[in-house]
């Protein structure tokens, strides 16, 4: 009986692998198809799309869709009492400033906090770790109106510096990622540096942080991409400095008939996806480096 069961389980194991493979293959196809379909549609004329259906090959190729979408990806802002438009390149610059500035601080702050908490024996460490765990476990819902009020009172609304300060927190999953990374780094390296007369700052910058650089750059890239793709926070806190993601959001809901066709919308989507794909192609190994998090003790 036991032998039969064992054989049965053995027989089922390739099925387990095959089922996951099949699911993954379907998933990959479900992702690639809309992207390829979108790229094809972006090169078709509106007339061709309606006459020949959703799956026809572009004939002729309409690259001018891209020029048109490019012209129409803009966000209206209030400027000196009138409405002005901010166009793609300026929004790209805003995105870069917002993503890099806030992304760097969102990585550096939890990294430094995790380092001192993991490596220095202070009673307050428990409080810091506790704050991270408790804020993760105990959800606070609906604090947006209050946050907006405080940001306004501090003059942080519409200020890149203000928004970066707001984002410079140590809370969340990445603190635990860095904490796990620093826990396994041996302290002997620091002790050797101390014997050589290095200060705590020097040890941190020259010895310990480089040992966690893989985790640091992975988290930095994850934060950068998350912020690059975020349109809601800039929509609320940077209303007169729209970012590219918000520009495309406004483009999607534009009431202008010139951009309301599938072909122009897909061209716009491709224009927006391009910088992120380039970034992903350049850093995909770094981006998908191994990260690990422990449990929530406390």
């Amino acid at each position: 009986m036991a032998k039969r069961l064992k054989n049965k389980i053995r027989f089922r194991a390739p099925v387990f692998a095959a089922v996951i493979f099949a699911l993954l293959a379907v998933y990959a196809a479900s992702l690639l198809l809309p992207f390829l379909w979108g790229a094809t549609v972006s090169l078709r004329s509106e007339k061709d799309f309606y006459l020949n259906g959703a799956f026809a090959w572009p004939s002729p190729f309409r690259f001018d869709n891209y020029a048109k979408a490019f012209r129409y990806i803009y966000a209206p802002i209030q400027y000196k009492g009138t409405v002005a438009n901010v166009y793609y390149f300026e929004m790209l610059f805003n995105s870069f400033l917002y993503s890099l500035g806030a992304g760097f601080m969102m990585t550096l702050v939890p990294c430094l906090m995790a380092y001192v908490t993991a490596k220095y024996k202070f009673r307050f460490n428990k409080a810091i770790y506790g704050i991270v765990v408790v804020t993760m476990i105990l959800p606070v819902v609906g604090s947006l109106p209050s946050e907006y009020q405080i940001a306004r009172a501090l003059g942080f609304v519409d200020s890149f510096l203000g928004v970066i300060v707001m984002k410079s927190h140590f809370l969340g999953m990445y603190f635990l990622v860095f904490y796990a990374a620093f826990r396994v780094v041996p302290w002997e390296y620091a002790e050797s540096a101390m014997i050589d007369g290095a200060s705590h700052y020097r040890i941190m910058l020259r010895v310990m942080l480089p040992l966690a650089k893989t985790a640091f750059f992975t988290v930095l890239l994850l934060n950068f991409i998350a912020l690059w793709n975020d349109y809601q926070s800039p929509m609320i806190y940077l209303p007169n400095h729209p970012v590219a993601a918000y520009g495309f959001y406004a483009f999607q809901f534009s009431s202008d008939n010139a951009v309301n066709s599938e072909t122009i919308q897909m061209a716009g989507a491709m224009i927006m996806a391009l910088p992120v794909f380039a970034l992903f192609a350049a850093f995909n190994k770094r981006l998908m480096g191994n990260l690990t998090v422990g449990g929530l003790k406390g």
Binding site: Y27, G38, W228, N229, F248, Q252, A269, M272, F280, L287
Partner: peptide
């Protein structure tokens, strides 16, 4: 790479592609 792709691309883009597709 495929599984990670939707995290790289903005929700506004994936929503637009999904919506039209």
């Amino acid at each position: 790479v495929m599984l990670f792709l939707p995290s790289v691309v903005s929700a506004v883009i994936t929503v637009a592609l999904y919506k039209y597709f």
